[in-house]
Design a protein around this nucleic acid. Structure first.
Lengths: 164, 164
DNA sequence: CTGATTGCAAAGAATTTGCACTGCT
DNA sequence: AGCAGTGCAAATTCTTTGCAATCAG
C-alpha cells in the first residue's frame, strides 16, 4: 500500500476518496474479490460510490501492475478476481467441489518460469498458474459416495467451502 | 477425434451435422479459437449454423473434458479460447506486444503439478499456466525504441504477430 | 418414433462509454 | 483554476435461456 501510493503518484493518478476505499478493501481482504463483491464492500463505506468506479479503478490498477487478475478456472462463472500483486509468485489451486482456494508458493514455480524464459527467450512480465482439483476433504467425501459424480465443469456454484 | 466420438457416444450425445463441423474446425485449427471465430468458420460450411449452437457445443465439450478453455492473459479482451485437450500438459506463453502465442512443454510443468499435488494433497483434474511477456523479436524492437513503452495491459488489440 | 438438438428471438451477466458535474492537486 | 475523476444512464460484448420445429439413433 505504501508503494501503491508512490506508483500512482508517478503516473499522475489522483488519490481520490473512492480509490482510497477500494485500495484498502483490496489490500485488507485476504479473499479473492470479484468486481461485484468489491463494489458491495465499498458501498458500505460510501453508499454513493458507483459500480462503474470500481471497474475503472480495477482497470487502472491492473494497468499499473498493482493488482493481478485471476479467473480461478471459471469455477463460479466468468467473472474475474483480483488480488494485490504479491512479492512472491504463487499458483491458485481451487477445489472443484467446495470452491476453496489454496495458494501454492514453491520452488517449482520459479523453476518453471526460469525454464520458459530460457527455452523460449521470452522476457516474462506476468505469469499465472491455476489448478483445479479436489481438496483432501472433498476427496474423502467423494470416495464415500456422498457426492454424486458429475462432470468437472458441471456442478453448480459452490456452497461455502467446508471449514478448514 | 476418434476418441472424441467414443466419449460423446458414451455420454449419449448425438453427433449432429453441426457438431461434426465444429469438432473438425477445432481439431484442425492449430490456432486458439474463440467462440466468435469458431462461429465464423463454421458458418462458411453451414450458413444456417447458429452462434448459440457454438456456445452450446463448446460448453458440452468443456464438460466432457474434450476441450480446454484458455483466456491467454486476457490480452485481447475477455473472450475465451478453446483447444482440444492435448495428450501433454503445456503452458501458453503470449507476447504482450504482438500477440503471438507459444506453447511450452517441459519437465518443469510436470514437476510443478506433482509438487502441488503432494504439498496440498489435492487431486488435480486440470491445470493451466499462462504467461505474458515479450517474445525475442519484440524485445529487440522495444530496446531499439521503435515501440513506445506502454503499460502492460494498455495496448490495443494486437496486429497480426510478426512472421516467425 | 421420440427425446435430444437446433434456430430464433429475447433475456442476462459483466463490463464499458458518453457526458455533464465534481473535486484533487 | 483546470483537468482528472465521478456518477448516472445507456450502450456493448459475451453468453445463456425459452420454446417450437427438426433430426439422429
Amino acid at each position: 500500500m505504501r508503494n501503491t501510493r508512490a506508483t500512482l503518484e508517478e503516473r499522475g493518478i489522483r488519490l481520490t476518496k473512492q480509490r482510497k476505499i477500494l485500495l484498502e478493501i483490496i489490500d485488507q481482504s485476504g479473499a479473492h474479490l470479484d468486481a461485484e463483491k468489491l463494489y458491495q464492500l465499498a458501498k458500505e463505506r460510501d453508499p454513493k460510490l458507483n459500480r462503474v468506479t470500481v471497474y475503472r479503478t480495477l482497470k487502472l490498477l491492473k494497468e499499473s501492475g498493482l493488482v493481478d487478475e485471476l479467473d480461478l478456472m471459471h469455477f463460479a462463472g466468468d467473472q474475474h478476481y483480483y488480488e494485490t500483486r504479491m512479492k512472491q509468485e504463487h499458483a491458485h489451486v481451487i477445489c472443484l467441489q467446495c470452491g476453496r482456494v489454496e495458494e501454492y508458493f514453491g520452488e517449482p514455480l520459479r523453476a518453471l518460469r526460469q525454464q520458459i524464459q530460457e527455452s523460449l527467450g521470452f522476457e516474462i512480465v506476468a505469469a499465472r498458474t491455476e489448478v483445479g482439483g479436489y481438496c483432501p476433504h472433498c476427496q474423502a467425501m467423494r470416495s464415500e459416495g456422498l457426492v454424486a459424480a458429475v462432470g468437472v465443469e458441471t456442478m453448480a456454484i459452490p456452497a461455502v467451502p467446508h471449514a478448514d
